[in-house]
Design a protein around this nucleic acid. Sequence first.
DNA 1: CGCGGCCATGTTGCATGCAATGGGGCTCTC
DNA 2: GAGAGCCCCATTGCATGCAACATGGCCGCG
Lengths: 243, 243
Amino acid sequence: MPLTGQAARALIELRARIFTGRLRAGDRLAEIPLAEALGMSRTPIRLALSALQSEGLAVPAPGGGFAVRAFTVREVDDAVALRGQLEGMAARLVAEHGVSRGLSRRLHEALDQGDAALARGVLDEEALDAYGAMNTALHAAIAEAAGNAPLSRAIAAVEALPFASASALVPSPGSAPQRHRLLTFAHQQHHLLVEALEAGQGTRAEALAREHADNARRNLRLILDSGEAEGLAALITFSDAVA
Amino acid sequence: MPLTGQAARALIELRARIFTGRLRAGDRLAEIPLAEALGMSRTPIRLALSALQSEGLAVPAPGGGFAVRAFTVREVDDAVALRGQLEGMAARLVAEHGVSRGLSRRLHEALDQGDAALARGVLDEEALDAYGAMNTALHAAIAEAAGNAPLSRAIAAVEALPFASASALVPSPGSAPQRHRLLTFAHQQHHLLVEALEAGQGTRAEALAREHADNARRNLRLILDSGEAEGLAALITFSDAVA
DNA sequence: CGCGGCCATGTTGCATGCAATGGGGCTCTC
DNA sequence: GAGAGCCCCATTGCATGCAACATGGCCGCG
């Protein structure tokens, strides 16, 4: 992954602008304005746009060029379900292969951090950040430990989509007490999942991982139905599909 | 998908050269020779190389540029296992949502075509082609009918890898009688899978789809162990990994 | 007044030019 | 003779130029 290079910079910046809503769904990605805005020539922009298409964040526009992909609610929901299936596979593989001493330590560290973040009844900004980081680390540890590179790639690909990431919904939902309840429940699932992994219960681990993702799907619908879609409107089209 | 355009042509041609072994694992993908060979400038070549990287067929080379990705046996095996998990999800979704009349027709047509191709004891070239086409159609029908676009994308991505495709192993394995036995068994699994789909048995359908992929994994190992790796040596490195 | 065709313009897609970087080979020295 | 340093060159990555295409507006015509 070239951290230097204009094309990489363009890709990162474009991703950021899409995720933050500065570029909204359907917006045309014209090369010249982007090149000027990013202070580079059109060539690296073109490369970044092509990569963005591979990532699924941009779609070819009629008559050439690209536009920001419009995601339907259905599609985001489907993506989370897919993530559940993939993480379920990862969990099953880990359980079947056995949990190494190092992995066990990583998992329990994450669980402890989550417990600590949730220990106080309220979740301030700092606790939310800590929980989010813990969540990312836990899921990443399991995905890695599965030892299946194509699987890891597939998980990374689906996490590149907006709101499909494991910790995408952490900061958002509802009131503070409700949020605490939701995260507490999710973290209980984490505990059960680790328990299943260490007990070598592959099928149970897979089922728990799926249920964990389904939980995220429910929370997502909660957010959308509650009209709490702050930045979401930029990315999700509430009417019908734009493939 | 732009069917016209030099970049698209370059991408297709490069994919073909990698799959046919004309470009071997580890080969450096230098722009100028490729541009000359394909009769175009370096610009569309660069675009195609970037896309090839997204597809996982090329990796960035140290010091810039790209090289043909080297696949380990392990990685191909993992990719097929992943395909099984994904097709298992598709099968489960289809079973849960119910099989439409049109889908049922497509499925049974495929089953009949497979039966016909296998009816004669021997498998000539034509019968193999027919079986392969049937196989592709059957798997594609189920993947589509699942109605989960991110899932379809994921399946397409994993099928883009060499030997991970559903029908990649059809023409290859072993002697003619052995091949007939293997395909007959695989097709019996097709029958059972369709039965499960139409009976709404989601869990069974998922298990069958996974088992079907595991069957492909066994056949793959059979080929590799039997030294029948004709064009495979160009793509698979039998020593250790090159990420 | 409405519609069709034409032109102008903006944009894309490709080709080419140019500087920077990294590697290989040669030579000089010890 | 072996090793180290230097120079040349090939290759990449980016910038820019150019032609083709599609789009939108305007004018002329019905």
